[in-house]
Design a protein around this nucleic acid. Structure first.
Length: 463
RNA sequence: GUCCCCUUCGUCUAGCCCGGCCUAGGACAUCAGGUUUUCAUCCUGGCGACUGGGGUUCGAAUCCCCAAGGGGGCGCCA
């Protein structure tokens, strides 16, 4: 009984894409689910397009997502090297085998794979830019091969033309390197995007020519653009992992969301710890249909995770943001910071909103939300309401007791004929400049009587 | 053009393999209420889908065929 070996094989030619991340995730999930091995292999054969900085982004993004690999360029392993650029000798050996069996030949300086079957020349249309042209091409009537795919079932497909094994510049082509590496690294399950399905018949041809049984394939659905047509591309909003890092999304949430793109937990939960995903992840449950990216759902899941993490963990991630925004410097009362975070956490859509939502707790220099003010003025004059509250606010000793605010409002209301509800929102606006936020009792308790009174006075005076 | 994959609410999906329990369930979004006065959370409710056409069957979202639509491949990119 052999152990499962999966691999993620990115090429460092650009930033780390959400589709790549999901492919890595599914490979990782399946390896962890089966107690197998997850391998990182760097497909850097195209020296013209490879860049070291992109490799670093891949490492960082995988680590950020918590996807650890058992073998890889930096981790070592028994089947290395794990960079294709260092595997020249291995490719030469396998090329020798194909030459020996007559399945490889030279043309135009490159080495080609020879398909088995009758050949003929056809005229065909092809696209060049937006022009449709015609050309002659040699096609081969090769018998179809069968791709055993656990998510698609058996797919029959025939290749109809020879393809390049080694480019004229001596670098191995994708199909050849990919298959040789999967063979030599003893990969048992190839889990990758559906965009590779059509190419897989080339790979099966190679396995057959080399006399090696192909691995189990699992072609997972693609992630489509949230708006517009086609699959998600680098330029689409939400497409890059580093964008989520920069916006302070929780990696647990991004990973959780990625799990849901092409797979559904059997127990029906959508927000769940990764250990539970690992426990129930089966390739046979992976969807066949492409999924459209929905950034609103991503945000929702992020918000859920904000509440799931431990309070200590929450503040460990939140405090640096307050520091970046210049709201805390490190020397202030930790208990005060914790109480602010405590009331904000339940209301926060995302960590990126924290500075905006927290600002008024730390400084008197906060902006007032114009839209919130307009909304208030539709219901009455907020300045007048706060002015009416002033005497009672001055009389109160503090807001430690939640009843204090209620008493202030009750006293103000007496004799005016107004409803208590007319006073809460104007007071919130006076002390925070916002139309919403945590429970007002808590806000006043944290700000303290003196600051509440000072801000109320300033608001009334028009400042 | 050609080959391959796919097709349930606006979006993500459950159900489909093993036809009846489906007047099709859930989530996001949205709308309306509620949280005996504030609120960005929370609760309740509303709106909302089996792509179309044939066939098989007593009975089809579920099985078969065709069409249409969507996606992808067809590079000396990966």
């Amino acid at each position: 009984m052999s152990t499962v070996r999966t691999r993620f094989a990115p090429s460092p030619t650009g930033f780390f894409h959400i589709g790549s991340a999901r492919t890595a995730l599914f490979n990782w999930l399946y390896a962890r689910h089966t107690g197998g091995c997850f391998i990182l292999r760097v497909e850097d054969t195209d020296s013209a397009r490879n860049e070291e900085r992109y490799l670093r982004v891949i490492y960082e993004s995988l680590r950020w997502l918590g996807l650890d690999w058992d073998e890889g360029p930096d981790a070592g392993g028994a089947h290395g090297p794990y960079k294709q650029s260092e595997r020249g000798a291995i490719y030469r050996e396998f090329l020798g085998r194909l030459r020996a069996s007559g399945r490889a030949y030279d043309r135009d300086g490159a080495v080609w794979f020879r398909l088995a079957g009758a050949r003929r020349v056809v005229r065909e249309k092809y696209r060049e830019g937006d022009r449709v042209l015609e050309r002659e091409a040699e096609v081969v009537d090769a018998p179809p091969v069968c791709i055993h795919d656990v998510v698609r079932g058996d797919v029959m497909r025939a290749e109809d033309r020879d393809f390049v094994l080694v480019r004229a510049n001596g670098e191995p082509g994708f199909h050849f390197a990919n298959v040789v590496d999967d063979i030599t690294m003893r990969i048992t399950h190839v889990i990758r995007g559906e965009d590779h399905l059509s190419n897989t018949s080339k790979h099966v041809e190679l396995y057959n020519a080399l006399g090696v049984p192909p691995p189990v394939f699992a072609h997972i659905p693609l992630i489509l653009k949230g708006d517009g047509r086609g699959k998600m591309s680098k330029r689409d909003r939400g497409a890059l992992i580093e964008e989520y890092q920069a916006r302070h999304f929780l990696p647990e949430a991004v990973r959780n969301f990625l799990c849901l793109l092409g797979w559904t937990p059997r127990d029906g939960r959508e927000v769940l710890p990764v250990s539970d995903v690992v426990a129930q992840f089966e390739l046979a449950d992976v969807h066949q249909a492409n999924a459209r990216f929905d950034e609103r759902k991503m945000s929702f899941i992020n918000q859920q995770w904000l509440r799931l993490i431990e309070p200590g963990e929450f503040s460990r991630r939140a405090v640096p943001l307050l520091r970046e925004a210049g709201l805390v410097a490190g020397g202030e009362n930790a208990a005060f910071v914790q109480s602010v975070l405590g009331v904000l956490r339940e209301k926060l859509p995302g960590l990126e909103d924290l500075p905006r939502f927290a600002r008024y707790f730390f400084t008197d220099e906060f902006e007032r939300d114009g839209a919130a003010r307009e909304a208030l003025e539709k219901k009455g004059d907020p300045v007048a309401r706060v002015r009416e509250l002033l005497p009672a606010l001055e009389a109160v000793a503090g807001f430690e007791d939640a009843a204090a605010l209620d008493a202030v409002v009750a006293r103000t209301v007496a004799g005016t004929g107004r409803k208590p509800g007319e006073y809460f929102a104007p007071l919130r606006y006076a002390v925070s400049g916002l139309g919403g936020g945590p429970d007002l009792h808590s806000v006043l308790r944290i700000l303290g009587r003196d600051r509440v009174l000072a801000r109320a006075r300033r608001f009334v005076s028009g400042a």
